[in-house]
């Protein structure tokens, strides 16, 4: 554990908590892509199956349980409890275009051809593109509430901080995982356009609004 890794995890945790607070306080999931949230739930379920087979640390287990619970909880809030506020007309990204290629890729490019390893690889590939329905929704409506922007910024920062963690681990521990690194870089790059808008608009007190 290094400072970048910890900061990344805390950023990830903050993103999830911001999203839950937004939905709970406003009793609404307007502006949030249910499809991205379903993809994140699939990501966590397929990645954290090792909760049952391998104990790493209390920290590791607690975070995994929280990520699993919160992602499934978010899907529940969006599709059941606050279903009426879900903006499904604008949430139209076809997730099979993400699920099928990432599933195929995980069968071809993996460290080991075993069920656990393929599911882990699939979750890494899927996570890298899981935000696309959300970004597509923002671009379709042309705007995002400030709280949604903070959520996206925290979520994007998390994988960016993980890249610094991987650089650190490569130099100081000789450890690297090429699958995680490449997918993590793709994931971070997808947020670049949003980061630019966040820094130039939201941090200056303006609403995130795309040019017409």
């Amino acid at each position: 554990m290094n400072i970048f890794r910890l900061a990344g995890d805390l950023s990830h945790l903050a993103a999830i908590i911001i999203l839950l607070i937004k939905i709970w306080k406003t009793r609404s999931c307007a502006g949030i892509s249910g499809r991205s949230q379903v993809l994140f739930a699939i990501v966590f379920i397929t990645r954290y199956l090792d909760l049952f087979t391998n104990f790493i640390s209390a920290y590791n287990t607690a975070m995994k349980v929280f990520f699993l619970g919160s992602s499934i909880g978010t899907v529940y809030l969006m599709y059941l409890k606050f279903k009426a506020t879900y903006d499904h007309n604008h949430d139209t990204f076809r997730i099979e275009f993400l699920l099928l290629p990432t599933a195929l890729l995980s069968l071809v490019l993996n460290h080991e051809f075993s069920v656990m390893e393929i599911l882990w690889t699939f979750s890494i590939y899927l996570e890298s593109v899981a935000i696309l329905p959300q970004l597509f929704m923002v671009s379709k409506t042309g705007e995002a509430e400030s709280i949604t922007s903070h959520y996206l910024f925290a979520l994007g920062s998390y994988r960016g901080l993980y890249i610094l963690n991987w650089i650190y681990r490569y130099y100081f521990e000789g450890f690297y995982d090429i699958i995680a690194i490449v997918a993590g870089c793709v994931q971070t790059i997808l947020y670049c356009d949003f980061f630019y808008l966040y820094i130039t608009k939201v941090l200056k007190g303006k609403k995130l609004q795309l040019p017409a």
Binding site: R5, D9, H12, I56, E112, S114, M116, W120, N165, I179
Partner: peptide, 10 residues
């Protein structure tokens, strides 16, 4: 090896 058994990241 980078198998599941060694994965400590989230």
């Amino acid at each position: 090896c980078h198998c599941s058994s060694e994965k400590d990241e989230l």
